[in-house]
Design a protein around this nucleic acid. Sequence first.
DNA 1: TTGTGTTTTATTGCCTCC
DNA 2: GGAGGCAATAAAACACAA
Length: 338
Amino acid sequence: MAGRRLIYGGAGGVAGGGGGSNMSSILLQNHSAEPLDSLFKSGSGPSFLGSRSMVSFEDVTGRNKLERSFFRSYDQEDNGDDDYDEYFHQPEKKRRLKADQVQFLEKSFEEEDKLEPERKVQLAKDLGLQPRQVAIWFQNRRARWKTKQLEKDYDVLHNSYKSLKADYDNLLKEKEKLKDEVLHLTDELLVKEKEKGSWESSDTEKLSEASVQEHTADLVSEGEVSKNSTLEFKQEDINSANSDLIDSESPHYDDGGHSSLLERGDSSYVFEHDQSDLSQDEEDNLRKCLLPPLSYVFPKLEDADYPDPPANSCYFGFPDDENAFGFWSYSDMIATYL
DNA sequence: TTGTGTTTTATTGCCTCC
DNA sequence: GGAGGCAATAAAACACAA
């Protein structure tokens, strides 16, 4: 145990905790019978707040001159002589510093949170406190500052955590959304593959060359190739066969339906996806699936001396609210040809 | 008034530095 | 080894609701 503790503890009387039971007994042995009144009254008085907060005195043995820390809120001017006497005849108690003392210490702390010995003594003089009290106050003040700083750091970290967590949750949601989209598109691809089988088997048999020719001839004989009537049966068939291609979430073309979805691939969400995700083989298969062979739709055109239809005129499968399908392009072609 | 929670003052024990 | 800092802690002082 350092000597300073004993000396200062001796001044403390009954005050103090921190497992200081042994200390208390020592202190009482040294000082409990000290005639304090005369000692305090004889003080010359620190400059700050009166003379009684601490004085120097010798212990009962007269060997050591001790700085007496006195719990100091009982100022004579505040309480009068009666209270003063009463105060010194009652067990000593821990006293809080005055507000102005604390204010002074706070200012000093703001300037520098560490205490040089000279500064400590000077502050003690100015405040009418014992240097040790000033040291303790600074020590406790540093502890409080540290605690507050930890709280601030915690808040900063906590806010940062919350922000990151929110970002993370959003990313998770987005991930799930994209995942669903991938599943949806995968399903679509599977359906398309199924439809490919349909085209090559039963569906193709439904429409004979004769029926196509007959229907076409009828249309021509009527002198009108109506976009709304031509090959209506075929549209229905194809629509039913490719209904799954019509994705309500996919943007529709607005170019009159004369563009091939497959050939364009520039504005369709679905096909942007397909183009980036599909291999060339897969894309070829998809073309086969979606595009009915020309010989099937218009068998006579296949070998005709008619310029190849523009690529964007052959698609039938993608809906357009205004103008329907690429088939109408064929109708126009037929009309021209005939 | 009293019980309870918080703040402040002070002590103790350990550690580092010189 | 003494001085001083710090963490942990005690206990008084204080605030406040019931």
